[in-house]
Design a protein around this nucleic acid. Structure first.
Length: 492
RNA sequence: GGCAUCGUGGCCGAGUGGCUAGGCGCAGCUCUGCAAAAGCUUGUACAGCGGUUCGAAUCCGCUCGAUGCCUCCA
């Protein structure tokens, strides 16, 4: 029997503001769409957190036995410098500045994006569609919205008529905004704007002569509006109604609000059953911004080449750090916090290594099956990974106690404990075992075994000068010796 | 200025009416030739001020602060 039949998953739905029991549209199948990056620069660490959160969501759904179609797009056209349909296309601008083709920009940063996500151990989505690959579908959708009367053409551009839409539907229901407030707060610049109302947004923009990225359309040469691609591609691959739509909190308004409006205008029904929004990542208590220098690139964390952190941190440690916070909470990254996460991460992973060799007893003194359910309870409660991790550390304590002979564990429970830990740590949280044994691993192991043997010989001979010399010299090279009950091990 | 999310012990971070997660640090202990590593033990904290309640970190109001979006400004 599939796990999802015995577990009750609840998801905080941003649309209703409540935790709701998750029931997919089609039993056993889940359709999930996540707004992907605009590939005009190196992927932002905050973006990574969002995608990592939804990777965890995806992994847990798969773990529960659902067949998930996970669609995450690549925005490679139409995303303007500001979101009020002014300014330049982000990708065109970068192409102009670097004097290369827009598609070179797209290619370069798509590759970067994939590389970074692979380091963070994110699973690839089922489908990763691009905006430029769906121009035809976008034009068709614009025609549909025009035909339904919720859009108008002006000088080769097509705009969505928000006020008209709001009469028949509810614009602002996702972000809790009222159209009256928005109108009251808007400066009157109708004179220089071709939109009927400042709240209207572009479905299609006429390309100015210097604009490089352009496609023919019934309204002349132009390019699609940013909000449209997500509506078009989610509908194409997941249907007019689908289960989960995710994205960063910063996309809630206007992007997701516009997606709802486009879909409702076109198809007459709300597109998404569960809206999920991941929260922001701050750095040393402040938002990340290139202009203030309060900014970190993922690779700068891995390499340690930055002015903010005291040392490099591996992708797995950063992932563990992020998983220790709930995805709906603002998370603050700092050197101190990463150091703490690194130690905790190693404690967890080291304990997992011990499970297999634990002594077995006829009966257990701990309730492994109940603990396993507590792990599920944590994840069932809106993917509460921090509470899950707290439960995992409960198991870490047991492992050490069993290892020291203080409590007993049956062979059956040992298997269950190990399988549960592996399932949650590796499959659900997506944490990887500490990197060891690359190309040089075996050689290094051999050298270290020799040094450890020599040092232990010196110690038994009470030649502490020699033994400490070995220990200290290795320490200076960044190799730490660990004297345990079972002998000496080392770590880099 | 508007909307939204939030403000928890030295740090990070769960918890949303009574049953006080977890990680890191600190301290004590065990182990050790000495250390390190590892393990064990230990913390009644919930921005401030009012209010509701038998009882609030948890509900309500106000103030202050943070983050995002919108506006303003530029």
């Amino acid at each position: 029997m599939a796990l999802y039949k015995e577990q009750t998953l609840r998801i905080y739905n941003s649309l209703t503001g409540k935790k709701e029991v998750f029931e997919p549209l089609h039993q056993g199948h889940v359709g999930m769409y996540v707004c992907g990056p605009t590939v005009y620069s190196k992927v932002h660490l905050g973006n990574c957190r969002t995608f990592m959160s939804f990777d965890m969501v995806y992994r847990y759904l798969v773990h529960l036995g659902y067949r998930v179609r996970y669609v995450r797009n690549i925005t490679d056209a139409g995303h303007l410098e500001d979101d009020a349909d002014q300014g330049e296309d982000k990708i065109s601008k970068k192409a102009r500045l670097e004097k290369i083709e827009p598609m070179e920009v797209v290619q370069r940063y798509t590759v970067d994006f994939h590389n970074i996500l692979r380091k963070f151990n994110l699973l690839p989505p089922s489908i990763e569609p691009t905006a430029t690959g769906h121009i035809v579908e976008q034009i068709e959708t614009i025609k549909l919205i025009l035909q339904k009367g919720y859009a108008y053409e002006k000088n080769g551009s097509v705009y969505f008529d928000v006020l008209k839409f709001n009469k028949d539907y509810d614009y602002g229901k996702l972000s809790g905004r009222r159209i009256e407030d928005m109108i009251a707060n808007t400066r009157d610049l109708a004179a220089q704007d071709e939109k009927n109302n400042p709240q209207d947004f572009a479905l299609w923009k006429r390309a100015e002569p210097q604009h490089i990225m352009r496609w023919p359309s019934p309204w002349g040469e132009g390019f699609p509006g940013w909000h449209l691609e997500c509506t078009v591609m989610s509908t194409k691959y997941l249907g007019e109604t689908f289960d989960i739509h995710g994205g960063g909190m910063d996309l809630k308004f206007p992007h997701h609000e516009c997606e709802i409006a486009q879909a409702e205008a076109g198809y007459g029904k709300s597109p998404v059953r569960y809206w999920m929004h991941a929260n922001m990542l701050t750095l040393n208590g402040r938002k990340m911004a290139k202009s203030t220098g309060n900014n970190l690139l993922p690779d700068e964390i891995f390499s340690g080449e930055n002015e903010i952190l005291s040392k490099p941190y591996s992708p797995a440690v950063v992932r563990f750090f992020m998983m220790q916070a709930h995805y709906t909470s603002i998370l603050d990254l700092s050197d101190e916090a990463l150091q703490a996460a690194e130690k905790g991460y190693h404690r967890l992973m080291d304990a997992m290594e011990l499970v297999e060799g634990l002594p077995e007893s006829p009966a257990s003194e701990v309730e492994v099956a109940q603990w396993r359910q507590r792990c599920y309870d944590a994840m069932n409660d809106d993917f509460n990974s921090p509470v899950l991790i707290a439960q995992l550390f409960e198991a870490v304590r047991w492992i050490h106690q069993v290892s020291e002979g203080k409590i007993r564990l049956s062979g059956e429970d040992k298997l269950l404990l190990g399988a549960t830990l592996n399932g949650f740590v590796l499959d659900v949280l997506g944490l990887e075992k500490a990197i060891s044994g690359s190309g040089q691993g075996q050689t290094l192991d051999g050298v270290m075994a020799l040094l450890i043997e020599l040092r232990n010989k010196a110690r038994t001979d009470k030649d502490y000068t020699t033994s400490d010399r070995i220990r200290d010299a290795l320490g200076e090279l960044g190799i730490q010796l660990k004297d345990g009950k079972e002998g000496t091990t080392y770590s880099l």
